[in-house]
Simulated scan of single mutants.
Amino acid sequence: MPTDPRAIALFLDMLMSERGAAANTVSAYRRDLEGASADLSGGLTASGTDELERLFAGWAELAAASVARKRSALRRFFAFLVAEGIRGDNPALAIAGVKPGRPLPKTLSIEEVDRLFATLDELLAADANPPLVRLKALMELLYGSGLRATELVSLPRNAIRPPQPFAIVTGKGNKERLIPLSPTALRAVEAQLALVPRESRYLFPSGKGHLSRVWLYKLVQGLAAKAGIAPERISPHVLRHAFATHMLANGADLRALQTLLGHADISTTERYTHVESARLVATVKGLHPLADEG
């Protein structure tokens, strides 16, 4: 089976020579396929449905149109591999379509988040090995600062400089923002920094680059399973949602939260007020003595 770069090059060459695809289309497919390959650590061509589903989970915050385009690129890419006899199946066909509208963000309760961190601390107390030290830093930054998965895994090594209680993060649109860090997060990052070579470009290095979003997804789900939380209920993005929802529940200002999350439009941040409202309504329905009366 050819490597990802070779397979992608063959596919794009077919689009141009046999299908007469427009330059913009070829360029978009190149970006999507090379990005997917990077997220799967060069294993796109050989990936199965499970890997592709985790890949799409990492694209949860993208616009529906962007996700649809990426899905189309993957389906056509794998269809090409099947037609060329490189693969016998098209795993992208099993990926569900984009649902219309924007559902309310999925989140976790404060008790569930506490359980995640209590489990992680127990594991660290038993054996503070490098993977667990790294996971502690990842979790503290996901939930403690509400970082996007891409922002987190690609953090430069010098983005956080203890004891300075903040980080400079480059988010969507190449915009920088300042992220406050809790003392617990700082300690976790200090422990991670002690394990990262000084010449490393990234805080969470992996191979020649940084930790992939797909691998981050696996790590978070693995911890959830150990904590007794259904893995399908959690992802890095769910922890970002939990950060925002719990901040609002504790009285955070909506504009301040918009800045922390790096949202260009406050309407995106306002979705979390609907999550909290829905939770309050559910609480009243479940606990109020008159809730079941007609």
Results as ranks from 00 to 15, higher is better:
residue 250 N to P: 01
residue 262 G to Q: 11
residue 119 T to W: 08
residue 104 L to R: 12
residue 257 L to D: 02
residue 92 A to L: 02
residue 182 S to G: 10
residue 111 E to V: 08
residue 258 Q to E: 08
residue 107 T to F: 05
residue 225 A to H: 07
residue 260 L to G: 09
residue 238 V to R: 12
residue 5 P to L: 03
residue 260 L to D: 08
residue 27 S to C: 07
residue 101 G to P: 10
residue 249 A to C: 01
residue 29 Y to H: 03
residue 210 H to W: 07
residue 252 A to F: 02
residue 160 I to W: 04
residue 272 Y to I: 00
residue 271 R to P: 02
residue 102 R to N: 13
residue 39 D to L: 10
residue 205 P to Y: 14
residue 264 A to L: 04
residue 37 S to M: 06
residue 5 P to R: 03
residue 83 A to S: 14
residue 139 M to I: 05
residue 233 R to P: 11
residue 253 D to M: 03
residue 225 A to L: 13
residue 220 V to L: 08
residue 150 T to K: 03
residue 105 P to L: 03
residue 257 L to S: 04
residue 107 T to P: 06
residue 279 R to F: 07
residue 90 N to L: 05
residue 189 V to F: 01
residue 100 P to S: 15
residue 136 K to V: 01
residue 16 M to D: 12
residue 272 Y to A: 02
residue 122 E to L: 13
residue 57 A to D: 14
residue 121 D to M: 12
residue 64 A to R: 15
residue 242 A to S: 15
residue 249 A to L: 02
residue 207 G to H: 11
residue 239 L to P: 03
residue 104 L to D: 11
residue 110 I to L: 15
residue 44 L to N: 14
residue 46 A to Y: 00
residue 146 G to S: 14
residue 130 P to Q: 13
residue 195 L to Y: 06
residue 200 S to F: 15
residue 106 K to W: 12
residue 23 A to F: 08
residue 39 D to E: 15
residue 66 S to A: 05
residue 141 L to Y: 10
residue 123 L to H: 12
residue 26 V to H: 08
residue 25 T to K: 12
residue 6 R to M: 10
residue 65 A to M: 07
residue 210 H to L: 07
residue 69 R to G: 02
residue 189 V to E: 04
residue 237 H to V: 02
residue 129 N to R: 15
residue 60 A to M: 13
residue 191 A to W: 07
residue 36 A to F: 06
residue 80 F to T: 13
residue 143 Y to N: 11
residue 203 L to G: 06
residue 98 V to L: 04
residue 288 H to V: 04
residue 134 R to D: 00
residue 221 Q to H: 10
residue 117 F to D: 10
residue 294 G to H: 12
residue 271 R to S: 04
residue 213 R to S: 09
residue 181 L to D: 06
residue 132 L to H: 01
residue 34 E to F: 10
residue 168 I to W: 09
residue 100 P to W: 13
residue 96 A to G: 12
residue 26 V to P: 10
residue 227 A to G: 09
residue 250 N to Y: 00
residue 142 L to Q: 12
residue 38 A to T: 14
residue 66 S to F: 00
residue 235 S to A: 11
residue 233 R to Q: 14
residue 235 S to L: 12
residue 237 H to C: 04
residue 19 R to D: 09
residue 87 R to Q: 11
residue 264 A to T: 12
residue 219 L to V: 00
residue 115 R to H: 07
residue 119 T to P: 08
residue 215 W to L: 04
residue 41 S to P: 02
residue 147 L to N: 11
residue 203 L to V: 07
